[in-house]
Simulated assay, not measured.
Amino acid sequence: MKQLFIMAISIALCWGCAQKASEKNNKARVSANIEGLEDMEIFISYRQKGDRKTDTIQVRDGQFTWEAEMPEPQKVSIMFPNRYSGFFAEKGNIQISGKADALHKLDVTGSELQAEADKYYETLKDLTDRESVIFGQYRDAGDEEKRNLEKRLGDIRSEKRKRGKVYIEKHPESIFSLNLVSDRATMGAYEEIKPLYDLLDNSVLGSDMGKRLTERLEVLKRSAIGETILDFTQNDVEGNPVSYADFRGQYVFIDFWASWCGPCRAENPNVLKAYNEYKDKNFTVLGVSLDDDEARWKKAIEEDSLPWVQVSDLKGFDNVISGYYGIRGIPSTLLVDPEGKIIAKDLRGDELHQKLAEVLP
């Protein structure tokens, strides 16, 4: 009996040791040495057990260390006071080196996933070099030249997307491929993301990142072309409830914007031009603001001379409507037909006028 008791204790102790060893083996251990980096606090953001977590790390003499449970590889963010830097972490020992004046070029070793990412980004160098030249020309360019530069940048982004798709097709079981799709899903449309999602192997879709991507896709589908718009209700600038049902029977351009959003404010004159041109042709605009400051919201409406109905719940990016559609960046728009079906998304500039000329009599 005594021997059985001792054996049971030994088994329990061994199991406990095995658990601790397993936990230890799942840890990512990061050591960094960044030349010229001042003593400061930095923040490292990552996911643990499905939740976003941020650790505060102290830098001393350009060096810092960080450990975290990392059962699956993932992209980790380092927030320096004036710069963001990201790298792929996984269990094991990882070294980071570089210089404080080039935090966007940190060298990361010890992570196979980061090595895969570096190799992929090297294949895009011809495109990123061309982008750099265009960015350098943009600031001093005139309006017409800026439009040409923007078109060239759009062509480069399109080529990047094509190369990304080819990579995903060739590496469907890669976590990096999964990350490429997940990054696109942050701001992309359902019609763009779903074909890429379908290329991925079930082995990566079963990971935590894969499950989050699946959930994200379900949200994006709500704004897919042909889907019916949500019959939402929010208050206007006077505090009166406005229901989308009041707009049925019209073409409605739903414009998600905010007073603090520079690109939104820059686009407002273009939307106003479209409104004035088509308002007598069964067309209107409905603004949904992601503001959280009522006074700033109302001031922006007045300054930009926006005559259409504006609604908001004044919850910022926690706006119920934008949250339902998974909107993570503005300006973002939906064009809805008289039956309440979404027929176009994210129309800006000339594209808005071209689409309205196409669908309105």
Rank of each mutant, 00 (worst) to 15 (best):
M1C: 07
F5P: 00
I11E: 00
A12I: 04
L13I: 14
C17H: 12
A18N: 12
S22F: 13
K27I: 04
R29C: 08
E41A: 08
R47T: 10
K49C: 02
D51A: 10
R52D: 07
D55K: 03
T56C: 06
A68C: 10
F80T: 03
P81S: 07
Y84L: 12
G86D: 13
F88M: 10
A89F: 04
K91G: 00
K91E: 12
N93A: 15
I94F: 13
L103N: 02
L106K: 06
Q114T: 04
D118F: 00
Y120N: 09
T123D: 02
L124M: 13
K125I: 03
I134S: 03
F135L: 11
D140C: 00
D140H: 11
E144H: 11
K146M: 09
K146S: 09
E150A: 15
E150S: 14
R152E: 14
G154F: 02
G154Y: 12
D155P: 03
R163N: 09
G164C: 02
V166Q: 15
H171R: 06
H171Q: 11
E173T: 10
S174W: 02
S182G: 11
A185W: 07
M187Q: 08
G188F: 05
I193M: 10
K194V: 14
L196W: 05
L196Y: 07
L200V: 12
L200W: 04
D201W: 07
N202H: 06
S203V: 10
G210F: 08
K211Q: 12
L213Q: 01
T214D: 15
L217K: 07
K221H: 13
I229K: 06
Q234P: 01
E238T: 08
G239I: 07
N240A: 13
A245W: 00
A245G: 01
F247Y: 15
R248V: 03
R248E: 13
R248F: 06
I254Y: 03
W257Y: 09
E267K: 05
N268G: 09
P269G: 04
V271D: 08
L272A: 13
K273A: 15
A274F: 06
Y275V: 04
E277A: 14
N282D: 09
N282S: 07
S289A: 12
L290N: 11
D291G: 11
E294C: 01
E294V: 08
A295I: 13
R296F: 03
A300E: 04
A300W: 08
I301H: 07
E303W: 02
Q310G: 00
V311N: 02
D313H: 06
D313M: 03
F317D: 15
V320P: 00
V320K: 13
I321K: 05
G323N: 14
R328T: 15
R328S: 13
T333D: 02
P338I: 09
E339S: 15
G340N: 03
E351T: 07
K355T: 10
L356A: 03
L356M: 14
L356N: 09
A357C: 04
V359R: 11
L360G: 07
L360T: 09
P361F: 07
